[in-house]
Write a protein that binds this DNA or RNA. Sequence first.
DNA 1: AAGTGGTCTAGACCACGTC
DNA 2: ACGTGGTCTAGACCACTTT
Lengths: 242, 242
Amino acid sequence: MAQESPHFSPLYRQIKLLILQALEDGEWRPGQVIPSEQELAARFTVSQGTVRKAIDEMAADNILVRKQGKGTYVASHTDPRQMFRFLRLVPLNGTLTHPRSVPLDCWRAKAGQEAARMLAIEPGAPIIILRRVLKFETRPIVADEIYLPGEIFQGLTLEMLQDWSSSLYSLFETRFGLRMIRAEERIRAVAADRAVAEMLQVAESLPLLSVERVTYTYGDKPVEWRRGLYSTAEHYYLNDLT
Amino acid sequence: MAQESPHFSPLYRQIKLLILQALEDGEWRPGQVIPSEQELAARFTVSQGTVRKAIDEMAADNILVRKQGKGTYVASHTDPRQMFRFLRLVPLNGTLTHPRSVPLDCWRAKAGQEAARMLAIEPGAPIIILRRVLKFETRPIVADEIYLPGEIFQGLTLEMLQDWSSSLYSLFETRFGLRMIRAEERIRAVAADRAVAEMLQVAESLPLLSVERVTYTYGDKPVEWRRGLYSTAEHYYLNDLT
DNA sequence: AAGTGGTCTAGACCACGTC
DNA sequence: ACGTGGTCTAGACCACTTT
């Protein structure tokens, strides 16, 4: 197939967009297999190698997962290996244990200026606010306050959260069909106020990590804004620079 | 060329190792062009496509940089776009300005337990300790203490640092032939002690980010250990989760 | 015009998982 | 035995840069 210029976009990138569109449309759900490379090549009338290159990029983006001999799967936060993909907190010494989420409150509100800007919605639009604590073993280490657009998360309740033993994002995926693709975290150091000090069982004014996260779904649409306060007495935030 | 099993390593990965070896041996220096894909294919007696795949991975690793129509280059910290590749600190509001490094001290010492472990050298081995401040505009924002293996950095002096207007890693590259490939950062929140409070012109006991970094060169060899204390009153540490 | 990387194709064969 | 993704090759042509 011929290429064009100027402003030329390679075929495999167009194929990538078509596959992304199909994912957005829910044609294949998280955890499921997508059609084989040969089938997709036939569907889009390109060679298998071109489909391969499109899928290569989407695998690098953590949107698809290849499994040799089986097929290509839609990545899912329900997969144990992806479960805490966005949590960079690691114990100072000792083994890597998965944290446990303890939901505290969940209520409706209207978006303030900041939440509206972060979630790219109108100020005053309905939002859901969720508070929880993350425990490693039995110790509370993270206090999270999570802001969600009400329109997308209609029907979210505290009970639903308490009944869900797996990660928050896997619940979002399963119950709301919403897959988190990427996130940005802004990190600062702050002093613990009284309320947080109590939740995390630390001294007031102890330095904590403040981790603000905006999480995006397909099409770089922001769908979650959260602020976590991390106690770093026995844990640290690990980041690989490449 | 035939493949083998079991424990089979694809050809392109073997080619990647051969190219890496040539880089370690200094066959091509940072900023220079490497031979064309055709030439490398001839040298290793494989097809051009196989060399391409090896180079693809090395470009993804930020070890090589492709430039269409010109050739493939060895990545360099002297390149303005790579200059502050490892610095994740961003102003809260306002434009992105490059910081300025102000060296304070530079002295010889013997490695303690911790430094020896981080740098994978013997306790008691010679090291160089370097202190500096990073200024954004005129404000001191980061106080760094940097530990370097003495064997590699023989001849490093405070004057050399003061005369060097560019980034530290570009100096390491130019003067010591040492290219930094990747780094790991461990982040915690701590309170400013008196000395640091003075350096950063902030109140004592103010919460600061403590950023410990181990930086690796070819072959995952650690060659730098540093601890930075970041004032996050008007800046934040930005991290993309993918 | 010549040389570089970038894209696209087609075909062969290997490794892995399932039936 | 079959279907999947993974590797390797060879050739054609496009886009970009330099001569």
